[in-house]
């Protein structure tokens, strides 16, 4: 093998060894690069606390208008929603109030029955807390703010954009002996 050829070979070897050395360094350089990349993109940042807990099932891509309605059936009360409508995302927990006051001078017991429009929304309207779950007894001239807490199921059909929640208060005849009808049955 000629001298020139050995020198050529050695030059190629030195270059390739340099590449190997650089790549060994690159393996280590991946450590800060990876940390920087995660920091910039916000992925996998182990040093910061996790985001506060929240409901991850809120479908923010949809907004549903919920309208509130209040009716009385033969009751000498005043009964109104605290707001005529709210805009909510499916999956979001919503608090609303209804105001009721007894205009009589003796206690009256009533039971509110909800209904929904459109009716198919009833299956997707999940009430966590509602004054309609129980009978309400108002003393003479008493006023109250009564809560409704609900979530709209994200499985609500896509074509439903507005839901009307309507309550009708009925006077419960006689005393407490008569059982209330199941409060959440839709349309009852």
């Amino acid at each position: 093998m000629s001298e020139k050829r050995s020198a050529d070979n050695r030059r190629v070897m030195v270059r390739l060894l340099a590449v190997a050395g650089l790549m060994f360094g690159f393996g280590y350089a991946m450590v800060p690069m990876y940390q920087k990349f995660c920091e910039v993109t916000g992925i996998n940042n182990l040093l910061n606390a996790d985001d506060p807990l929240r409901n991850t099932q809120v479908d923010t891509s949809r907004t549903i208008t919920v309208e509130f309605d209040a009716n009385l059936h033969g009751l000498p009360w005043s009964f109104k929603p605290g707001q005529t409508s709210v805009a909510v995302h499916p999956g979001e927990l919503v608090h609303v109030v209804y105001r009721v006051s007894n205009t009589r001078d003796h206690p009256v017991t009533g039971q509110a029955i909800p209904s929904y429009g459109p009716q198919l929304a009833a299956a997707h309207f999940r009430k966590m807390e509602c004054f309609c779950f129980t009978k309400q007894t108002l003393g003479a001239g008493e006023s109250r703010e009564m809560p409704v807490v609900f979530v709209i199921d994200p499985a609500l059909p896509k074509d439903v954009n507005t839901i009307t929640l309507s309550y009708t208060f009925f006077e419960v005849a006689g005393t407490l002996a008569e059982p209330a009808s199941k409060p959440s049955r839709p349309g009852a």
Binding site: V19, A20, M23, F24, F26, G27, Y28
Partner: peptide
């Protein structure tokens, strides 16, 4: 091989 074997060597060294 010249490019990636050193990276493996680095990983196992770590």
């Amino acid at each position: 091989l010249i490019a990636v074997m050193p990276v493996l060597a680095g990983a196992v060294t770590m």
